[in-house]
Amino acid sequence: MNRLDGPLDGLLHLMDRQVVDDEGLLVCKCDDLELTDRGDGGLMVTALLIGVPVWLPRLHAWVYGGWRRLGDARSDRQQPYRIDLADVERVTQEIRLRRGRAGALERQRSGDASVRRLVGDLLGAQVLGPGEEHLGKVLDVRLEPTREPNDHALVLSGLLVGRGRPGSYLGYDRSEEHGPWIVGTIVRRLHRHSGMVAVSHISELDWDRHRVTVRTGLGPLTHSGASGGAQC
């Protein structure tokens, strides 16, 4: 079951997943996702991002700050590597590429203001509802394939909002049956205030202040399609 055929979640299904080339050789882990703002309000995921500049900040901002100060001579040191989604053939339990491993990673070009990152810029952003009501933080993004045959990017169709930290759900929210029963129950209880917001309801996305303002309240959490299972 290729997850790219239907709706999927950015953090849950793409992040930290093993990237494998067309011969089955291991390439890297996906450390972040490249978001491109296509102007007409459309946010798309256009590439996988890999490398210390995107992995280290996820450990701790302080560690990342130390690493940045350690070397400033190279101009592109803080640019991550990217794998364009056009090179991705399918997403099952791993991300399989259409090409071989050699030369698959390329440095992202710097300076493009419309290019953002999922973890760095969107995850954890405050979500404010009508009347400045604090709805929670962005925990994950719901993505869908575009309808265009040659466009391999993924469209952001919704935000998962809640009170925990991103990733603390361990995926127990997106599937009904998940033993052990007690762990699932505890996690679900901790996240009883979570919900989804459609992207069309976003009124303002302030990247600098890490804030999203939406027109409506939270809708119920939906599952992003059946979990296909092993070795598809």
């Binding site: 049956e177 998940h178 092993a230």
Partner: peptide, 14 residues
């Protein structure tokens, strides 16, 4: 324990 319970990886062999 978490991984062995995940339908995504284990399918019907959870």
């Amino acid at each position: 324990l978490v991984v062995a319970n995940d339908h995504d990886y284990m399918g019907k062999h959870v």
